[in-house]
Every structure is written in structure tokens, then in C-alpha cells.
Design a binder for these strands. Structure first.
Lengths: 242, 242
DNA sequence: GACGGATACTGGTTGGACAAATAGCCTTTC
DNA sequence: GAAAGGCTATTTGTCCAACCAGTATCCGTC
């Protein structure tokens, strides 16, 4: 990558872009002042004055920091340092449904088995009655949802709520970027009229296993639930219905 | 104030920011037109007209795409699609300005426990002698590596090779995205002179457990290995050495 | 046809303006 | 005196209208 002419761009004082300078300057300021997560940055206008640039330039620099998950900006509040870099990194690789291959589907489903079945120890360690209650509520909403889009959305929400129990934001973020693919899998199953009632029953029994703290039953039922949808998908794909 | 009237045709009740809308619109346009790496985007002024926003808004959206490693912008040339996402993700963490927050650290390490310990069933299902051989080889290289950077790199390669056994590209990709953070964790542990020899021994015993197909021992040793680094990190952070 | 300069177009930056949101202060009311 | 609600000042969000610097492209000259 960009190995064109290293010597040209390097002079530290004469820079390529004013915006990049501001980004570097802000980073230097963070380092110099020892700012950490939760601390505030000066206002945009202050930064303009400090660095002698226009506000638009500062704003573009701010957009970069925001895109990198380093700051959070709110009107009247200003910019505060955060560490959402991991989430931002994941979002860069958000899957686009358009170009998802069969292999990707397999991988996503395998990933789900890892996150939703193999993680049972962590799930049961952190599980509370409130979690069970929330899951039941979502599942009830799932049963009465009519449009397939809505049903798939609620289906996904239920599984997301399950992942939420893990209390791991990175895992939750990753699950989020897989959403389009997962939704597509769910949608396909539902448009093929494959027993939404059965799906509701699946969910109910999984939640029952959680409620009873029955780890063996949970693993078995969740695995069955995922693999069933998976097999239905595979059959459909093999018939060229993708 | 001519722009105010235009905003009617683009009601963004759902979204929060006009800039985010433009980002989404551009991404939609890329998908719709089937644009790929190397293709060009319309000029900023064209995008302004198309989306009915000001040029600053388009430019801020462009900054986001640039920060995500999706486009490269050159004067007179315009924006061309690229795929520098991985490098952009790395940039977020490689800069020493902001240390990885405690939360991110916890999440990543918890994620690793999921991928490397809880996945033991899948790992052992697919494990071959060639895998064991490859792991041993990497570990030997790890023992004799002197610079800490090199050691961390090899350490990561060993764990990546382990994840590789899962045969799931999505998981491998996610692990790759977390690389900068994991590397930082490893580097920290190593710069604190915490017994690289001990790390080698850890690895060796984990590989032995794999070789013997001893699932219980594998889980125990791998968990210990990860949690030990974890505790060392925590102590360092608690002492304010971050 | 080759070369060189003029031109138009592009991103980069600036300064200024108004809208929208809201934290913090102030007033009112009980 | 305290709580509720309104006001103001400040800050980000968006827009506009320029101008600059660089260069791809066209055009005229040789």
C-alpha cells in the first residue's frame, strides 16, 4: 500500500492536510493532559482558536475521532472521550447482505452455535430472573407478530437479548454486525411458512430450560433450534431457492 | 436559507444526523450500482445536489468513509472505493495516545475465553495431528523470539492458529479485528517482564492437552493461561501504570 | 502528431450565519 | 424553604458563498 514517495509527505511541520493536523494535535493534547475516558475536550470554537483553523476543519477532524470511536459528541455537552473503538472496528466490517456467500452463512451459523450454545456456562453464571422475564415477554410479542419482517425482527431481538446476558459488549457488537445475515436466514425460514408456531415453542422451551437452570436441556434445545433452521436453509439453498 | 425548504423532501425523523443519512445513502448507492474497489464516486458537489444537502455535510460524511478505510480521496480525481478497513481498524489502537479502557479489555478477554475455551468441543472435533504439529512449531519460534514485538506477534499467531482449527472464517475475521487490542495486552504483559518462559510453558502444556485429546486439561490450562494475563493486567492498571 | 499553455473542474479551507438542543440559572408558586 | 417550570446562554448541527491550489483536459501552435 501507499509506498509511493515516503520522503515527500514526511516533513513534520509542513503537513498534507489541515484536518489531519488537527487530529494529531487533539491526540497530542489528550496525551499531554493525560485525558482518559470520561474527560471532556474543549469546545469546537475553542479548538478553532487554539489551532488557528476554521470550525469546519475542526468539525471534520472531530468526525474522524467520532468514526474511530474515540469521542462522543452531544450538543451543549461537547465532546467527551470514550472507548468505542472496538465497536467502530467491528462496524467497519458490517456484512452486506448483497454479497454474502454460502460459506458466510455457514460461518455465521457456526458462530451463533458458539455464542448461544457453547457459551452456556457464562450465560448461566450471569442469568437472572429478570432476564428470563424479558425473554418471555419478547417471545410473546414474537408469537402475535404477523408480518414476516416483524417476526424476524422480534426473533432476532430475542436471540440478541440472550447474548445480552453475557454482559460482553464486544460479543454483542459482533452479533449486531451479523444481524443482516441472521435476519435473512430467519426471513427465509418464515417466508417458507416453516411453522412460526413451532419457532415460538422452540423459544419457550429454551426459556424454560433457562428458568429451570437446566444447562443440559438448554444446550440441547438451543442447538436443535439453530440447527433446524440451518438445515431448512441449506435445503432451500440446495434447491436453488436462494 | 434556501436549504431549509429542501429539508422537507428529506424528512429524517428516523435518523439522528444528516451526515449519517448521507453515509447511509452513499453506501446504498454503492450497493445499488454494484460499485467495487477501484470504482469512483460522484463528486462532492454532485452528491450535494443528489441528496439535497450542503457540501460540508457531504464532506463530513466523506470523512467518515475515509476514516473507515472505504474510500480514498484525491483532489481533482475524486473519491475512489478502496478496502483499507483492516489497516484503519489497526490505526485506532496502534496509536499510543489512548490506552485500551478497562471495559474493552474485559470484553476482549471474555470474548477470547469464549472463542478459545468454551469452543473446545468444536476444536476437538476438528483437531488433526497437523494442527498440533503446527502449533508446536509456532511455540518453538515463540520461545526463541527476542524483541517483545516479535514475541507478541508470535504469541498472537499461536492463538490465531488455534482459532483456525474451528474452520470458521467469520470467527477468524473477528479474532483478526481484535488483534490490535490482543497484541496490546500481550505486549503489556511482556514489557512487564512477566516470564516469557512461563508463557512458553503455558502454551506447551495446552498443546500437550490437545495432542492427548484431553478436553478437561485443555479447558483448565487455557483458562488459566488467559486469566493469568488478565490478573497481571488488572494489577498493573490498579496501580495506575496505565 | 507532439508539445505546451490556458481553462475548467475538483477537493481543501475559510468565515459567517442560523437552527436545534439543552445545562444551568432564575422565577414562580405552593 | 422547596419544588416545578420557564428562560437564557452556550454548544453542536447544518447551511451558504466564497476562494485557493492542484491537475486533468482541451486547444492551439509548431
Amino acid at each position: 500500500m501507499g509506498g509511493q514517495a515516503d520522503s515527500i509527505q514526511t516533513p513534520r511541520g509542513a503537513s498534507v492536510s489541515a484536518v489531519d493536523d488537527i487530529v494529531a494535535a487533539i491526540r497530542a493534547m489528550i496525551a499531554e493532559r493525560g485525558l482518559a475516558v470520561g474527560d471532556s475536550l474543549p469546545t469546537e470554537r475553542e479548538l478553532c482558536e487554539r489551532f488557528g483553523t476554521s470550525r469546519n476543519t475542526v468539525r471534520e477532524a472531530m468526525r474522524i475521532l467520532k468514526a474511530r470511536g474515540m469521542v462522543e459528541v452531544r450538543p451543549k455537552i461537547g465532546a467527551t472521550l470514550i472507548d468505542n473503538r472496538m465497536e467502530s472496528a467491528f462496524q467497519m466490517f458490517s456484512l452486506n447482505v448483497m454479497d454474502v456467500s454460502r460459506e458466510t452463512y455457514d460461518d455465521v451459523q457456526g458462530f451463533r452455535l458458539l455464542l448461544e450454545v457453547s457459551s452456556f456456562e457464562q450465560i448461566f453464571d450471569r442469568l437472572t430472573d429478570a432476564d428470563v422475564e424479558a425473554l418471555r415477554e419478547i417471545n410473546e410479542g414474537f408469537r402475535i407478530s404477523v408480518p414476516v419482517n416483524d417476526a424476524a425482527e422480534r426473533d432476532f431481538r430475542l436471540h440478541t437479548r440472550l447474548i445480552f446476558i453475557l454482559g460482553n459488549k464486544a460479543v454483542l457488537d459482533v452479533y449486531g454486525i451479523m444481524k443482516p445475515v441472521i435476519l435473512k436466514i430467519m426471513l427465509r425460514n418464515k417466508t417458507r411458512r416453516v411453522f412460526e408456531g413451532e419457532n415460538y415453542e422452540d423459544h419457550a422451551r429454551i426459556i424454560d430450560a433457562l428458568d429451570a437452570r437446566d444447562r443440559v436441556a438448554y444446550q440441547y434445545r438451543m442447538r436443535e433450534h439453530l440447527v433446524n433452521g440451518y438445515n431448512r436453509w441449506n435445503k432451500a439453498v440446495d434447491r436453488g431457492e436462494a
